[in-house]
């Protein structure tokens, strides 16, 4: 049953990515817009409005960068192309929709599912610790953002510079946290398994 479930999730993920990221509907703006709307609705039902908005907010700097570069390429007619705006718009829709879809799919994989996988215990422990760390990381992200808002050392007269520096700090802090968290959880689980076995 578990293998059936995980197989279905993998199939759906593969189908979504083939259809909207690598395949026939990639350059269709209406299809991409509809996919994003559908995925956001699903995310809203699954995780709630706050978490969905939080994920969108997380994507915003990436999307802003994509847009900025797209505009530069469009106005400079880079490589002689005139479709930079359309291509950039597609990318701005694909990125949040594929990220949100992946998050939704992964959220259906439970710890019990991982334990039932036909893998070595060490491999299962690794998957459990990664899942646990990413779940904690998602909750901790908001707290990190709160702390960064209190640091006067970050504050700058230039809003864009402040936003970029804050975002960089957020990514670094999250990376450090996940690294530490995965290491600690992995060590703890392996130690307990060794003594229980």
């Amino acid at each position: 049953m578990t293998m059936l479930k995980l197989g279905a999730l993998a199939l759906m993920t593969g189908w979504f990515f083939w259809l909207f990221v690598f395949g026939p509907l990639y350059s269709h703006l209406i299809a991409q817009g509809s996919a994003l709307a559908a995925v956001l609705l699903w995310s809203n039902l699954r995780f709630g409005r706050r978490e969905t908005l939080s994920l969108l907010k997380f994507c915003l700097p990436f999307v802003a960068f994509l847009l900025a570069f797209g505009l530069i390429f469009h106005f400079t007619r880079l490589l002689g192309r005139q479709d930079w705006l359309k291509d950039t718009t597609v990318k701005c829709l694909v990125f949040p929709s594929s990220l949100t879809f992946l998050k939704i799919m992964l959220s259906y994989v439970t710890y019990l599912d991982i334990l039932r996988l036909p893998l070595s215990m060490n491999r299962r422990i690794e998957m459990i610790t990664v899942k646990s760390a990413f779940q904690k990381g998602a909750r901790t992200l908001k707290r990190f953002s709160w702390y960064l808002n209190t640091y006067s050392g970050l504050k700058s007269r230039h809003r864009i510079r402040y936003a970029m520096t804050k975002y960089a700090c957020l990514i670094i802090a999250l990376y450090l946290y996940l690294y530490q968290e995965i290491e600690n959880s992995n060590r703890l689980l392996k130690n307990r398994y060794r003594h229980l076995g």
Binding site: R143, F144, L148, T165, C169, I172, A173, L176, Y177
Partner: peptide, 17 residues
């Protein structure tokens, strides 16, 4: 803050930048 162990990650990131 109260959760200083979490805050230290942000401090490390801030000081590194």
């Amino acid at each position: 803050g109260q959760d200083i162990r979490n805050q230290l990650y942000t401090l490390r990131a801030l000081l590194a930048t």
